[in-house]
Design a protein around this nucleic acid. Sequence first.
DNA 1: CGGGATCCACCTCGATACTG
DNA 2: CAGTATCGAGGTGGATCCCG
Lengths: 136, 136
Amino acid sequence: MAQQLEPHRALGEKFESWMQFDFDATRCPVRNLLDHIGDRWSILILSALAGGPKRFSALARAVPDISKRMLTQTLRRLQSDGFIDRDVQPTVPPQVTYSLTPLGKSLAAPLLTLIDWAETNFASVVEARQKMAEAA
Amino acid sequence: MAQQLEPHRALGEKFESWMQFDFDATRCPVRNLLDHIGDRWSILILSALAGGPKRFSALARAVPDISKRMLTQTLRRLQSDGFIDRDVQPTVPPQVTYSLTPLGKSLAAPLLTLIDWAETNFASVVEARQKMAEAA
DNA sequence: CGGGATCCACCTCGATACTG
DNA sequence: CAGTATCGAGGTGGATCCCG
């Protein structure tokens, strides 16, 4: 067990040709995480919830261009992964509040680090892209 | 300028119905970054290069289940985004070495933080998922 | 060795309509 | 308010073959 957990940093000499071995991405922690929250919406939802519990409609406003379909789907996924809690108040109309679990909060920390990077370095990124475009 | 840069954390009261305003994801730093490196491979490539410059075939070994097509495509993208440099030695056979630019290195830092999280919390994640599955 | 070009299967995702 | 159901376009990405 735990035999092949980090092939992408330990460059092996055991692989000779193109991709002929049984690499299982689901057993690699990084790949596994990325396969679950590496889509377009999960990180956004998690970071929105990092500010505190929010209702379905509040999340929809926080991520303006997400559809109800994708919001629901993403929330279900994050819930089944143990990152968020879903609290339903059976009132009329119903109120459903989502919040981070302890595990979710722990994940949100490095995510917010990444978000901070994006915000503070956005100008540099745009500038770099323009320079690369000019060099064409 | 910079008028609507972070709608997903500042929950506004200015949005009343479903998605009828001109939100441009490319102008949001977080969305912009995610749209560029939020695919299945970019983060893996960047983290592989964080360990130092590597050649094409070395990267292919580092990310075992990527195809040449996707590796090339991802590298081109990261290059045109200013995250990596491409150095071609016109020998026979050719040697092409990729390395992080300063901007790429700066991005790699928060990425490695995330990767660390994945590796140290993998067991907890698996455990959480099993508990959620049982509760079905 | 390090690609490029082409073809095509999947499958994610948005749009739309309906519901308790 | 907070979803579910269905349909269909589009884009991602794998497979394969070729090249300097």
